[in-house]
Amino acid sequence: MLKKLAIIGFGSTMIGVGINGFILPFHLINGGIFGISLLLKYIWGFKAGITFILLNIPVYMFAYKSDPVYFFNGVIGAIISGMMIELLIPLNGTVQLPIISSVIFGAVMIGIGVGVMLRNHISPGGMDLLALLIAKWSKVNVGVIMVVIDAIIILTGLFLLKDPRLLYSLLIISIVGLLAVLITSFRSEEAFTK
């Protein structure tokens, strides 16, 4: 249990730093329910972390029925990730980088955080949990499923906000998806025995 909490703490911190330090300053989004939460923040000023936790509820109700283990791991992952996003808001605007550097740094941090959690069968929330369940049923790599879902969310954001900078978000989801695929593909023997 302590190892699981340490993994969730590390992954959530990476996600929180990546979003607040590198993604929010340019009003970009990443994928999944994180992306939807950021869209709602930009359009109506909702708190991203709280919105993230609330939007996860229906997905978790579905997960509870289909796989209680994923459900419990996911609930802890989503709540801590949502809290870290809120706690690390002061990082917004502290790092001054060109947009492309910010996108790459932010995406790498989020990708490592998400990948490490998924590798240990912990969902950082929502769409990732849905992607984990779909991957389990379909045998398609979870990272590939995430990229498809995330691309749909970003294209919707592009349509709603009409901000061409959101095209950078496609780079974010590509890097996050690639890292999730890499981290979840190279599993240790220990990961197989769990």
Results as ranks from 00 to 15, higher is better:
residue 50 I to V: 15
residue 189 E to T: 08
residue 91 L to A: 03
residue 110 I to G: 10
residue 67 D to L: 05
residue 150 D to S: 05
residue 166 L to C: 01
residue 76 I to T: 12
residue 118 L to A: 13
residue 18 G to E: 07
residue 173 I to K: 02
residue 121 H to V: 13
residue 136 K to A: 14
residue 13 T to D: 07
residue 94 T to K: 14
residue 8 I to F: 08
residue 151 A to C: 11
residue 155 L to E: 10
residue 81 S to F: 00
residue 112 I to M: 15
residue 6 A to F: 07
residue 68 P to F: 02
residue 2 L to F: 05
residue 87 L to Y: 06
residue 192 F to R: 10
residue 105 F to T: 09
residue 164 P to S: 07
residue 28 L to I: 07
residue 59 V to L: 13
residue 46 F to P: 00
residue 154 I to T: 05
residue 64 Y to H: 03
residue 191 A to S: 14
residue 166 L to F: 03
residue 136 K to V: 14
residue 176 V to H: 05
residue 141 N to L: 10
residue 41 K to V: 10
residue 191 A to T: 05
residue 181 V to M: 12
residue 10 F to H: 12
residue 85 I to F: 01
residue 187 R to K: 14
residue 118 L to P: 11
residue 109 M to W: 00
residue 28 L to F: 03
residue 24 L to H: 07
residue 150 D to R: 03
residue 93 G to M: 06
residue 58 P to L: 05
residue 124 P to T: 13
residue 134 I to W: 12
residue 193 T to V: 10
residue 181 V to Q: 12
residue 40 L to M: 10
residue 168 Y to A: 02
residue 122 I to D: 12
residue 121 H to E: 15
residue 126 G to D: 07
residue 30 N to Q: 12
residue 140 V to A: 10
residue 153 I to K: 02
residue 193 T to M: 10
residue 50 I to H: 01
residue 171 L to D: 06
residue 187 R to D: 04
residue 3 K to V: 09
residue 144 V to L: 13
residue 82 G to Q: 07
residue 25 P to M: 12
residue 59 V to C: 08
residue 84 M to I: 04
residue 17 V to A: 04
residue 160 L to Y: 15
residue 151 A to W: 05
residue 101 S to H: 10
residue 163 D to I: 03
residue 19 I to C: 14
residue 30 N to V: 14
residue 161 L to Q: 15
residue 186 F to G: 11
residue 158 L to R: 04
residue 156 T to V: 13
residue 7 I to S: 03
residue 103 V to M: 10
residue 21 G to K: 05
residue 32 G to P: 01
residue 69 V to N: 06
residue 10 F to W: 04
residue 21 G to D: 11
residue 117 M to E: 15
residue 179 L to V: 02
residue 172 I to H: 00
residue 83 M to V: 12
residue 90 P to T: 07
residue 180 A to P: 06
residue 25 P to G: 07
residue 80 I to Q: 06
residue 126 G to N: 03
residue 145 I to N: 03
residue 61 M to C: 14
residue 82 G to S: 09
residue 64 Y to T: 01
residue 111 G to E: 13
residue 142 V to H: 13
residue 28 L to Q: 02
residue 4 K to Y: 06
residue 31 G to S: 00
residue 165 R to H: 10
residue 40 L to W: 03
residue 85 I to D: 09
residue 88 L to N: 10
residue 141 N to H: 11
residue 100 I to C: 03
residue 59 V to G: 00
residue 162 K to Q: 15
residue 38 L to W: 02
residue 92 N to H: 05
residue 171 L to C: 10
residue 72 F to R: 13
residue 99 I to A: 03
residue 10 F to Q: 05
residue 131 A to E: 12
residue 72 F to W: 14
residue 165 R to C: 02
residue 62 F to N: 09
residue 51 T to E: 04
residue 57 I to N: 05
residue 100 I to D: 11
residue 36 I to D: 04
residue 159 F to R: 08
residue 128 D to A: 08
residue 19 I to H: 08
residue 44 W to C: 12
residue 1 M to S: 15
residue 149 I to K: 02
residue 9 G to Y: 09
residue 184 T to N: 08
residue 153 I to T: 10
residue 185 S to M: 06
residue 152 I to H: 04
residue 134 I to A: 10
residue 91 L to R: 06
residue 51 T to I: 01
residue 148 V to P: 01
residue 90 P to Y: 09
residue 120 N to E: 11
